[in-house]
């Protein structure tokens, strides 16, 4: 029911971005962290947000979820100002995939994924059949349906991260926010996670904004990259347009060379040995 409503809403306003931030200013203590940040994410694209540690990437996500409030500027979700959304309605529109789930208590996988139905379930009414179906669909979408009765803490890192994705999918959102989702995963699990994400993004026409530290991973899996530096967007475009030696120097303060990936031609970054352009900058990790 809500998925069909969601589809019509997306179709009716296919021109409005799933997410847009315009001229966001945010201070952390006395230091200005974001100074006129503007970005947008459309339905059906994975947008990678790059930037140095402390550049405000996670802060940007928190301004979208509403954990933090911008000093000025406008955040719009599905064409409507964030503050105009009712909290639960917003949670049906956008979902968060954290770096790592913080699970207190010994929940099973299925119980956790059902928590994703929280914005759909009434206060006193239990989960309806539709809710249980949605949770099951979400588990199938990330291939954890066979883990349903397993306890979360017994899972591997990759399985845990797919549970986090399933919780977000159970919300049936049109926009996904991911905060370094593959940070703790090994190579195989990273690839599996992004394959799943890419398939879902295109199948469900999700808008995806992902904070990613690993520029090469971002170049491989993102349709578009945003480079955040000095509180605003330094570069915005395809991986080829954004990952240039000049941009990498200005963002991370590193000298780098770029080679096309042998399989798909996406740019891959190679640091030049011992040639940091600015003394005060440290190289990206």
């Amino acid at each position: 029911m809500s998925s069909s409503a969601l589809t019509t809403a997306t179709n009716a306003r296919s021109d409005t971005p799933a997410l847009s931030l315009s001229d966001i200013r945010f201070r952390y203590g006395r230091a200005a962290l974001l100074e006129g940040l503007s970005l947008h994410v459309s339905a059906g694209e994975i947008v990678g947000l790059l930037g140095r540690n402390g550049s405000g990437k996670t802060t940007a996500l928190r301004l979208v979820t509403g954990t933090l409030q911008p000093a000025s500027g406008v955040v719009q979700v599905a064409g409507r100002e964030r503050r105009a959304w009712r909290r639960r309605a917003l949670a049906r529109e956008l979902a968060l995939v954290p770096q790592e789930l913080q699970v207190a208590f010994d929940f099973t996988v299925e119980e956790l994924v059902r928590l994703g139905r929280a914005p759909h379930v009434g206060w006193l009414r239990g989960h309806t059949t539709a809710d249980l179906d949605a949770a099951r669909t979400a588990m199938r979408a990330v291939a954890i349906d066979d883990l349903a009765t397993r306890r979360y803490r017994d899972l591997s890192g990759g399985e845990k991260q797919r549970v986090a994705l399933a919780i977000a999918l159970a919300q049936e959102p049109s926009l996904l926010l991911l905060d370094e989702p593959t940070h703790n995963l090994d190579l195989a699990q990273q690839a599996l996670f992004f394959q799943t994400l890419e398939r879902l993004t295109h199948e469900r026409r999700l808008g995806v904004l992902a904070v990613i530290h690993d520029v090469n991973l971002a170049a491989l899996w993102c349709d578009r990259l945003l480079m955040l530096a000095d509180g605003r967007i330094l570069a915005d475009g395809t991986p080829e347009q954004v990952l240039t030696p000049d941009n990498l120097r200005r963002c991370y303060g590193v000298e780098a060379r770029l080679l096309p990936h042998p399989d798909n031609g996406r740019p891959q970054v190679f640091l030049s040995q011992g040639t940091h352009s600015h003394g005060q900058h440290s190289p990206a990790r």
Partner: peptide
């Protein structure tokens, strides 16, 4: 009446917030 939101808070306050709590 608040058992459902309390379940969501098992994921931490920030995630619960993102779940509409």
């Amino acid at each position: 009446a608040l058992a459902q939101p309390l379940n969501a808070m098992s994921l931490g306050e920030e995630h619960a917030h993102a779940l509409g709590v």
